[in-house]
Amino acid sequence: MRIAIAGAGAVGQSIARELLEGDHEVLLIERSVRSYQPNSIPGAEWMLADACELASLEEAGMQSCDVVIAATGDDKVNLVVSLLAKTEFAVRRVVARVNDPLNEWLFTEAWGVDVAVSTPRMLAAMVEEAVNVGDLVRLMTLRQGQANLVEVTLPQNTPLAGRRVRDLKLPSDAALVSILRGGRVIVPQADDPLEAGDELLFVASSNVEDEISAVIHGEA
C-alpha cells in the first residue's frame, strides 16, 4: 500500500518505520524545516510542504494513496488534512491523531476521518484496564462504522470460566475478535473455552456495550 503521513515529528517517524517494516510505500509530508530529516528514514519518500495546501497534496500524488495518516501535533491541521484527503482525493482510509481529548468530537466522517486515535484516551484506557478487572474499557473509536474497540478482562470469579465461545450470547452489533491469554493472541473459535484472566477484545456499537457487560457478568 502507498501511505501518506502528514507530520514527520516523533509520532510520524515512528509510524513510518513500522509501516516500512511491513513493506509499505511511505510518504512523509512535513512543513517544518527543523523536522524535515530525510536521512533519519531513508526508506521513505519525503516532501517539504504544507499538507493543508491542496496544491501540495496534488504534487504529492495524494490520489494514489491507499491510506492517509494525519499525525501532526495540531488538531486543526489534522482535521484539514483529513477533510482534503477524503473529499478532494477520495482516499479510502483516513486515520487522524487527536492531541486534545476535548476536540475528539470533531474527528468524525463529517471531517473525513475514518479512525480517530486519541493518545490521551488510549493511555487512560490502559490505566482503566489495569485496575478495573471485569469492567468494559473502550480502547478506540472506529468512526467509519460508528463502532468501538472494547476490552474486558475476565475476573477470577467469572461465571464464564469453562464456558465456550459459542455460549456467549452477544448482541447482533457486537463481535468477539480476539482473546489475549498470557503471551498468546487467540482468534476465537466456537469451541474455544474461556478462562479467568482472559482479555476479550470486542468490536461493538456504543449502544450495545451495556449488553456485552451483562453477558460477561452472567446477567444476560
Rank of each mutant, 00 (worst) to 15 (best):
V117Y: 07
R184W: 15
V127C: 09
R93H: 13
D114H: 14
E209H: 15
V98L: 05
A85K: 06
R184Q: 14
V68D: 01
R97V: 07
Q144M: 04
E53K: 10
S64Q: 14
G134T: 12
I179F: 12
R92K: 15
A55I: 11
Q37E: 04
N148S: 14
R166S: 10
L20K: 02
L20D: 00
D173R: 14
A190E: 14
L201Q: 15
Y36G: 03
R31M: 06
V165H: 00
L106P: 08
L149N: 00
A51D: 04
A116C: 02
L176N: 11
G182V: 08
L54N: 03
P171T: 14
A85R: 02
Q37L: 03
S56P: 01
I29H: 01
S118V: 05
G162M: 12
V215C: 12
A10H: 10
G218P: 06
P188Y: 12
E209V: 15
A161C: 15
V98Q: 01
E128N: 13
I186M: 13
E59H: 04
A220N: 10
N99L: 04
R93V: 12
S172G: 04
A49C: 04
F107Y: 12
L154A: 10
G182N: 13
Q37V: 03
G22A: 12
D114N: 14
G197P: 12
V137L: 10
G134F: 12
A96W: 05
D75H: 02
K86I: 04
D100H: 08
E211Q: 13
R2N: 06
N103L: 02
V68N: 03
A124C: 02
D135L: 14
L106F: 06
T72H: 00
W46F: 07
D191T: 10
V152G: 05
I3C: 11
W46V: 08
G134P: 12
N39R: 11
G73E: 00
E219C: 05
M140E: 03
L48V: 02
V33E: 14
V81W: 01
V81Q: 08
E129S: 15
E209M: 14
D210V: 09
L28Q: 00
L142P: 07
E151M: 15
A70T: 09
S82D: 08
W111G: 08
Q189G: 13
T158S: 15
N132M: 14
A60R: 06
L154K: 10
S178M: 13
R92L: 13
C65N: 09
E88T: 08
F107G: 09
L27I: 09
T141K: 15
F202G: 09
D167H: 15
C65Y: 09
S56M: 05
M47R: 06
Q63F: 07
S118Q: 02
V98M: 11
A110C: 02
V127W: 00
T141E: 09
